[in-house]
Nucleic acid binder design. Structure first.
Lengths: 140, 140
DNA sequence: CTACATGCTCTAGCGACTAGAGGTGCAAGA
DNA sequence: TCTTGCACCTCTAGTCGCTAGAGCATGTAG
């Protein structure tokens, strides 16, 4: 009977100790059994669940989406349409975010290139910020 | 003596009314004069400042960075090295964010394509999330 | 004069943590 | 055995940039 402490679970899963406790508090991870001295004692399955959560968070899924994905994972005989829909929705979000960041990058490059490193009143960085009309492209 | 109400300032600048009050509360926008009935009364310069803030926020600058940019704008005879540095730092952030979002997009596409729309236990979405090792590329 | 939109202040909530205070458990070295 | 010191515990409050709502006061159009 090997006992996994919260610290070990953190090291193995890559989720920080306070974050693990936070996930427990919001019901994303079930409360584990406790040792005699009231310390959390995790099973390998908990560590896998934490790794799942971490990876999903890295992919930008919100906690609510992860909650759904986790319940799906627990019922492997269900059709996976929901998981697919969640991933697809996230993909669309990511594509939009990339597009808007590319526009933003172009604008920032213009600002930085235009800056003659002189005085503020000739600086394109400030100028472009002050007057959105100077952007060569449309936002949104 | 035209008086600009907070509602007009909001419409002209594109910053919402509660957000304007919030900016005042955190000292990003100076408290304006008040009408007899204690209502905020803005000058055109305030509206320009709000538009500046809004544009900078759209570009993803944090409020602290905007604070610096605003004080720079107020001192046009200073060298603009700080403004340049802030914009460059933001550019680097944006470039990194784009790169990581592209990796993420690839991973999500793999997940969605691999999903055979069958049962959860054959679903690549769940599978990939559960085992990061299945990603064909390295993160970070 | 009466609606009703707009304004005011204040407090609390969002998401997803993070930081800190103040205390307890536990394992290893002296 | 004692003690040192890290890891653990709970609880509260703070972060960022707003947003929502309660409960009033004011300003304006018909």
């Amino acid at each position: 009977m090997k006992k996994i402490t919260i610290g070990d679970a953190a090291r193995q899963s890559g989720v920080k100790v306070p974050t693990i406790r936070y996930y427990e508090s919001i019901g994303l991870l079930a409360a584990p059994s406790r040792s005699e001295g009231n310390q959390r004692s995790y099973e390998p399955a908990d560590v896998r669940r934490l790794a799942f959560i971490r990876h999903a968070r890295e992919l930008g899924f919100e906690v609510d989406a992860i909650r759904t994905l986790l319940t799906l994972q627990d019922e492997p005989d269900q059709p996976c349409a929901s998981a697919d829909a969640i991933a697809k929705a996230r993909l669309i979000e990511v594509e939009q975010r990339i597009r808007s960041l590319m526009a933003l990058k172009a604008e920032l490059e213009m600002m930085v290139e235009g800056c003659g490193h002189g005085r503020v009143d000739q600086c394109r960085v400030i100028e472009v910020l002050a007057d959105h009309g100077q952007c060569t492209h449309a936002h949104h």
